[in-house]
Design a protein around this nucleic acid. Sequence first.
DNA 1: CCCGGCATGTGTACCCTGTCCACATGGAAA
DNA 2: TTTCCATGTGGACAGGGTACACATGCCGGG
Lengths: 211, 211
Amino acid sequence: MTETPALPRETYRHGDLRQALITAGLDLAREGGPDAVVLREATRRVGVSPNAAYRHFADRNALLAAVSASAQGQVADSMLAETDADRSDDAVADARRRLRAVGTGYLRFAREQPGLFRTAFSVPDDLANSGSPAKAGSAGLTPFQILSQTLDELEHAGVLPAGRRAGAELHAWSAVHGLGMLIIDGPLRGLTPEMIDGATVRLLDMVDRGI
Amino acid sequence: MTETPALPRETYRHGDLRQALITAGLDLAREGGPDAVVLREATRRVGVSPNAAYRHFADRNALLAAVSASAQGQVADSMLAETDADRSDDAVADARRRLRAVGTGYLRFAREQPGLFRTAFSVPDDLANSGSPAKAGSAGLTPFQILSQTLDELEHAGVLPAGRRAGAELHAWSAVHGLGMLIIDGPLRGLTPEMIDGATVRLLDMVDRGI
DNA sequence: CCCGGCATGTGTACCCTGTCCACATGGAAA
DNA sequence: TTTCCATGTGGACAGGGTACACATGCCGGG
């Protein structure tokens, strides 16, 4: 952010080409999803030759992975943005409300930033990396970690039976993620925002009842 | 299937180039997902010049859409393959079992044919087309139609309250589809088949409880 | 303070892909 | 039989990923 893009730079070295490429990649992803993250275009926007990228990323896929991780950080922010920090004296209601908020934030991001959302989750990943700092949002937590914490609260509040706690991330995430995908480029495109809101609420009802 | 691929054909006309290209596209998709559906490669495998494809498809995207629809037909077959036709005298148990079977078949396909699964659902679609014959399996039903019928049974059996029937496709599908995506290239890759089986069962539990 | 090495960028080149245009061919309808 | 047009072919162009050789100048050791 310290230099003017697409203008010839003063110094031979760029300063932080790696981050600049990721930022450019995020712009591309926002506009057109993962396929739009084109290595040559990213370097062009940064004002650097195409091959310069190879000093910082093994190949296009490595760049895309970095962009994807960064997008996941934005998802994390969106998830937390929906939660209100103040707690009532009803731990059960709090915990359930919080799970809904996290899901709502997740789906809001999917709707508002479909390109970034697809990019965030279209790169093959691994559970082992689900806590990688590269995927964390401003709060330092990755989407998976946020969900995990929320489920922990649910368990402590006694809403989620201990026997169902293990792997619960999976189920909650599946439901919400699936709806996100179906809304973005599945058969649910074209629904009005109101209809999507309704579907979101009812899907979260299902999770609330079923988890 | 009537001609030998990659061999020079006898006649000037191909016979059914359109279908041959779709078949080749399915092979490509099976091996590498939607991105692997490369127009030139498909024509190459069929033994035809690249431009010949343009007599049958407006562009690469149209080919991909046709391949995707065909893949959805295979998903439909997989969903039905899991259901056993015989009914007991317990309509409630039957209906619930059938919903599980449909979900299981869907997820089995995702695991066994990840490339085709991704291809089936990576093409932007519309609810209005969810019943298009191009997406139907051998039984003449599309995945969406199969799910709808199953939910109708659930409602008739009294398991699904009438007030929750509308849009229930959405929620059931979301949950199962989300798990499929997470298994294929989300953070759940690398789980053993047993773990995936367990996750599948428990996810279907959640749907069963929550829908 | 200077200098040399190595990280970082550049240029050139190759192959692959999608797609446009002009042209060829031959099966079928008149 | 003749003609027409649906179907294929060939050539060409732009854009993309990436390998290889080369350039540059920042930085640490003398």
